[in-house]
Write a protein that binds this DNA or RNA. Structure first.
Lengths: 125, 125
DNA sequence: GCCACTACCTTGCGGTGCAAGGTAGTGGCT
DNA sequence: AGCCACTACCTTGCACCGCAAGGTAGTGGC
C-alpha cells in the first residue's frame, strides 16, 4: 500500500521543486559547465536537499532536447566513468533570464498573499 | 514549427503553483471563511491569474479530507446555488504557519541560487 | 414551464519528481 | 589476468496534480 500521504511537508517540497528545478540547473550551468553528479551536490550546498539523480538526468535530457543546453564528454578527474558536461546555449541563457524574472514576480505575489492574509486573524497574542 | 514545447514559461507557472496553491488557499481562508468561486478571484487579484476552478475544488476536497479545513453550506447572497464555505481547523492553521516558514526558506534558497550563479558569465557577444 | 445565472464537482489528459535498479568505464588489489 | 569497489550515467514504474472541458444542482425572472 502507499504511505506517501503522511508527511505533507516533504511532499510540498517535491511540488515546490517542480517549478524551479530547471531554472536552478540553468543557473548552475551558467556559472560554468557542470556534470550530473555536481548538481545534486551544488543544490544541497545551496540548501535544497532534495533530488535523487533520477530527477536530474531526465530533466537535463529534456533541456538538451529543447535546445537550452548542450553537452560534451570529458574524462573523470577522479577515476571513473567519463563525465558528461553541460553548458548553456544562447536560448538557454535567454530562458534563464526570463525564468528568473518570472520567479521573482511569482515569489513576490505568493509572499504577499501569505503575508497579507495569513496573520489577519490575530487571535494568538 | 515547433509548437508543443514553446510555452515553457506558461508551463512553469503551472508547476510553480503546485507547491504553493494549497498554502495560498489556507492563507485566504485564514482571513475569513470563503467559498470556491472566491478563490480564483482573490488569487487573480493578488497577481496569480491562473486557476480554473477545476484545480481549486479538488484541492479543497483534499484539504478537507486531510482535516485542514471544514465546510458549511450557506445560501448564496446573489441568487443561485447555495455556497460551500470553508474555514480553517486548528490543524489547518498550524499547517499554514509551518508551510509559510517552509515557503520563505525555500524562496530564499532558490533566490540565492539564481542570484549567485546566474550572472557570473557575462560573455554576451 | 422554461431559460439564464450562480455555484459546485467530475473526468481524461499530460507532465514530472522520485525510488529503485541497471549499464558502463577506471583503477587498485590479489 | 581476474575481481571488486568506485564513479558516473541512464531507465523504468509509480503516484501526484494542474488544467480544460463537461456535467449537476439550486434560484429567480419572464
Amino acid at each position: 500500500m502507499t504511505m506517501g500521504l503522511s508527511s505533507s511537508g516533504e511532499q510540498r517540497r517535491s511540488q515546490l521543486l517542480r517549478g524551479v528545478l530547471d531554472l536552478c540547473l540553468l543557473s548552475l550551468i551558467a556559472e560554468r559547465p557542470r556534470y550530473g553528479f555536481e548538481f545534486t551536490q551544488a543544490l544541497a550546498a545551496g540548501g535544497l536537499e532534495l533530488i535523487s539523480d533520477g530527477s536530474v538526468y531526465p530533466l537535463l535530457a529534456r533541456m538538451e532536447r529543447a535546445g537550452l543546453i548542450s553537452s560534451y564528454r570529458a574524462p573523470s578527474a577522479s577515476g571513473g566513468a567519463p563525465r558528461k558536461y553541460y553548458r548553456l546555449t544562447e536560448d538557454g541563457r535567454a530562458e534563464l533570464t526570463r525564468g528568473r524574472d518570472e520567479w521573482h514576480a511569482f515569489a513576490g505575489q505568493v509572499g504577499r498573499i501569505l503575508d497579507d492574509f495569513a496573520s489577519t486573524g490575530d487571535d494568538t497574542p
